[in-house]
Write a protein that binds this DNA or RNA. Structure first.
Length: 514
RNA sequence: GGCCCCUUCGUCUAUCGGCUAGGACGCCAGGUUUUCAUCCUGGAAAGAGGGGUUCGAUUCCCCUAGGGGCUACCA
């Protein structure tokens, strides 16, 4: 397989779902693996569902993930335009719909939406399902049942119409899926899908096939939800005379909810407190707004890595892959068939792996904006040192700020339970003497601080366990955190002195209050 | 309901007829460590069920069950 042309074809009806990102990723990977071309095409044929800003969101998401298209809207390419609304303006689709009519593979249908709804409910009342197909089309209002004159009259008087594909009866339609193998459909099961809507826009099915052909797409990699309509697509290629150059299909397994049933949906994000979008999406109402992976504190490399492994594996035991390594290792053959549950814990683990191997300086750069957002202003060196101390104990970028906040402001709360357990009011003077010793330390670095504290332990007769936890709680509020001496050094002499003073007072209060 | 797809530890998965069924996340235990974390060691944990084919089935076939998708003038 070399030089494939693949496309990611989202429709701008809202934020790009993480499943869409994975589809884009797989397309991108195959393109890069084979030295091919990755194309983005915007499928904006549904005017009623069009959402302002969605296209920008999609392009920005791809950019954040590092999945840069070779061709696409705003990028260019020899097969543009890359928005279907613009392609429609050029009359691209109508032409082929007409060709279908001329060849007897499609017909005009004049049934109104109301009429169709009515007949559907009538069927439903009889516990049947209505399907506009070879079995029912002769009972409907269309150019097959109307006389040629009547049809012409209706068309001439601008009566609304759709163009439907005339799916033949009693045929077997076989598709050969790269992931699933041979899948067969009986044409009687297939409905006469609308190709051209009454507003003149093509449906997905029409536009998709025309564009894939015109853009010389070689491989269609898309979600499994498209498998059932692929039979129609094969028929379209055939009737348009393009079957020889028909692309190969690869239908990806779906990404499922972390718990419960069904595929991952937008609502799962809110419900479970996890991101399901790459970037945050700000809608008019809070219910329609979502927090993205980026804002959650994920690195795009980790998201790619995580997503790549949802449905694919390299066949080796390596799990950490950069985007370049993924390009190298990727193959359609190693994509699985069954749906994969979204596992947030695993996603965090991937992120942690990337954080740990990242340099302190790079991390500082990434969390700088988060700190600014909280009103913390510190210089890069300080932040970098802070990252060095924290990076082995966080899994999200936001954890740095949330967990290590005490490096930027005073301790908010102390671990009272442990204060009660470990603080002895009669040792107050002893600890004050440590405070004074620390305050008079010349060069306040980790090594010197350690010496002072250890000397204190020796002379005071206290045990390590009676000193370290106290200092920890006094300085950070809790028993967990980075290396005590490095922490003290980074906080600096003044802040350490202040915090100890404030904490000892508080500890006394807590213990005397009983 | 109809059609299509899928089915190995809780989760993601390896296995392309010979398996003491491997790895990872998570979980548990132990070790390292001033705490937490990292790191190291160990542990519990799986072939949906029933029929075939075969010397031998997790692997191939069929049935059942379960899960998922589609069933719009949405993509």
């Amino acid at each position: 397989m070399t030089g494939v042309r693949v496309r990611f074809a989202p429709s701008p009806t809202g934020a790009l779902h993480i499943g869409g990102v994975r589809t884009a990723l797989y397309n991108y990977l195959l393109a890069k693996k084979t030295g091919g071309t990755f194309i983005v095409r915007i499928e904006d044929t549904d005017q009623t569902r069009y959402i302002e800003g969605a296209e920008d969101y999609i392009m920005e998401s791809l950019k954040w993930c590092g999945l840069l298209p070779d061709e696409g809207p705003g990028i260019g390419g020899d097969y543009g335009p890359y928005r279907q609304s613009e392609r429609k303006e050029k009359g691209l689709y109508k032409k082929y719909a007409q060709q279908l009519i001329d060849n007897g593979h499609a017909y005009f249908a004049f049934d109104t939406a109301e009429e169709l709804t009515a007949i559907r409910s009538k069927f439903e009342a009889e516990k049947k399902t209505f399907k506009y197909s070879s079995a029912t089309r002769m009972d409907m209002t269309n150019s097959l049942t109307l006389s040629a004159e009547e049809t012409q009259k209706r068309l001439a008087s601008n009566e609304p119409y759709t163009i439907r594909l005339k799916v033949p009866a009693d045929e077997l339609v076989v598709i050969n899926d790269l992931i699933r193998g041979e899948v067969t459909f009986q044409s009687n099961e297939l409905d006469d899908k609308i190709m051209l809507k009454s507003d003149g826009m093509p449906t997905y099915h029409m536009a998709n096939i025309v564009d894939d052909h015109l853009m010389k797409i070689t491989h269609v990699i898309r979600g499994e939800e498209w498998l059932p309509s692929t039979a129609h697509h094969v028929l379209l290629y055939r009737y348009l005379g393009w079957e020889e150059e028909m692309p190969q299909f690869a239908h990806l397994p779906l990404i499922l909810k972390p718990t419960g049933k069904g595929k991952l949906s937008k609502r799962d994000g809110d419900k479970l407190g996890i991101p399901v979008f790459p970037l945050s999406w700000d809608a008019a109402t809070p219910e329609d707004s979502f927090q993205g992976f980026r804002e959650f504190g994920f690195l795009s490399e980790a998201v790619n890595n995580f997503l790549a492994f949802l449905g694919w594996n390299p066949g080796t035991e390596q799990e950490i892959f950069s985007l370049n390594e993924l390009c190298e290792a990727f193959s359609l053959e190693r994509i699985g068939k069954s749906g994969a549950r979204f596992d947030f814990e695993k996603a965090k683990w991937f992120n942690q792996q990337y954080i740990i191997t990242m340099t302190d300086e790079k991390l500082a750069e990434l969390i700088q904006p988060l700190l600014l957002g909280k009103g913390y202003e510190f210089d890069q060196d300080y932040i970098a040192s802070f990252c060095g101390l924290m990076k082995e104990r966080v899994s999200l970028l936001t954890d740095f700020v949330d967990v290590g906040y005490y490096f930027f402001e005073d301790v908010r709360t102390y671990d009272e339970k442990n204060v009660r357990k470990r603080w002895k009011t009669d040792r107050r003077d002893l600890f004050e003497s440590l405070s004074i010793a620390l305050a008079s330390t010349e060069d306040f670095n980790a090594e010197n601080v350690e010496k002072v504290v250890k000397t204190f332990i020796e002379t005071s007769g206290l045990k390590f366990g009676e000193v370290f936890p106290i200092l920890r709680i006094a300085l950070a509020g809790s028993m967990s955190g980075p290396d005590l001496f490095k922490m003290m050094a980074l906080l600096g002499k003044e802040r350490v002195a202040e915090r100890l003073k404030k904490a000892f007072n508080y500890f006394d209060e807590v213990c005397l209050a009983v």
